[in-house]
Simulated scan of single mutants.
Amino acid sequence: MIDSKQNPPLLQDYTQLLNHSSSALDVKKCVNHEPGLEERELPVVDLSSLWSPNENQRASCASEICKASAEWGFFQIINHGISLELLRKMRKEQVELFKAPFEQKSNSGLLDNSYRYGNKTATCPKQLSWCEAFHVPLTKISDNSCYGEFNSLREVMQEYASAMQQLANLIAKVLVMNMGVRKGEWEDKCDASTCFMRLNRYPPCPISSEVFGLVPHTDSDFLTILHQDEHVGGLQLMKDSKWMAVKPNPDALVVNIGDLFQAWSNDVYKSVEHKVMVNREVERHSIAYFLCPSYESIIGCCDQEKSTYRKFTFGEYRSQIQQDVRAFGHKVGLPRFLVSNRDTSMRV
């Protein structure tokens, strides 16, 4: 029997989708779980060297960031300048927020009505994410009316978002300089008004062998900084055409490259497909910071004659993603913007 008090009511939604599937075996095949997948550690970059007075140490650190971005699309950072106390406070506030009743989270206007769970556009089990989240625009974080009774969350959210914005810009500038982009062009592209924070919770899942926590995807931004659960694993990424599980590192934040940096760098930096798996017994929390440009910002390789992608704006990119999700149930992404792509329906 389904628990009517389940928070959020994911199992009910999944049951409806499962009833339209030909068999449970087909569902598991679509989800493509790999039991016992080996955990591996991502490259670890010590950011303290970026503040070193020694030019060689700064250059070496920048080289590590660019190498990991090109070879992995993912890396971990330590000594990043964000205090462990702030990370702990943010996690504590996040956990308390998700403990609220489902009706309060979904109907009370919390955090600019940014609450979501599962995937309302899912038409089959492989499109459903077993998670709940607040996807919050940075422009709303300082708005008192967004917090309701969660008064202590506002101050922590503001401090956390400010720290993440500075850190994301620092890493982005390293990547931009390596691309040979002229000075000042990054400042023209970066726009805090379109950046987001996403607070995630992955509830215990009684059908964990049949569903994703977060479906396979790439991020539609410049880069993402993830504060993942220090103890409960679940993040997996594609490496050398195979899925690998990321071993949690309590001392590190995870950085991954988004679609916009891959396009702007002409495929030098890699926006890598990744997903989140769920646990049958325990919940998992994470916080993602998404670094985005203004909607009018043009994304295009410096040498357009050799570019893999045509020029496009961030607004155009987001609009195309939304169209594809409505039409096909999933994002198509960068293949839509290939110079050589004459059939925009490919891979859908």
Rank of each mutant, 00 (worst) to 15 (best):
N113K: 10
K189P: 04
A122V: 05
I321R: 09
Q94P: 00
E305V: 13
Y202K: 08
N200Y: 15
N54V: 12
L338D: 02
Y309L: 11
A62M: 11
F74C: 03
K242Y: 06
M1V: 04
A192P: 05
N249I: 00
K247G: 14
E64V: 02
N79E: 13
Y202C: 11
S22G: 06
R201H: 15
A133Q: 00
Q236L: 04
I77L: 10
S265W: 06
Y269H: 07
S142H: 11
W72T: 04
S271V: 04
K29C: 13
Q104S: 08
L128K: 00
W186M: 15
L235C: 05
W72S: 06
Q16S: 13
D219M: 01
E210R: 03
L199I: 08
Q228Y: 00
D259L: 01
I82E: 02
Y147A: 10
A327N: 11
G148I: 02
A100R: 02
C146Y: 03
S340A: 09
M177H: 11
S52P: 04
A163M: 03
S4Y: 07
G73K: 03
V156S: 11
Q16A: 14
N151F: 08
L111Y: 06
Y289F: 10
L138I: 05
Q320C: 12
V45S: 12
V339G: 00
S319L: 12
S319P: 02
E85H: 07
S83W: 04
K173C: 15
N200T: 09
A168T: 13
V268C: 11
Y117A: 03
D3Y: 07
V176W: 12
S49T: 13
L167F: 04
G234L: 11
V44F: 06
D240H: 04
R326Q: 14
D240W: 00
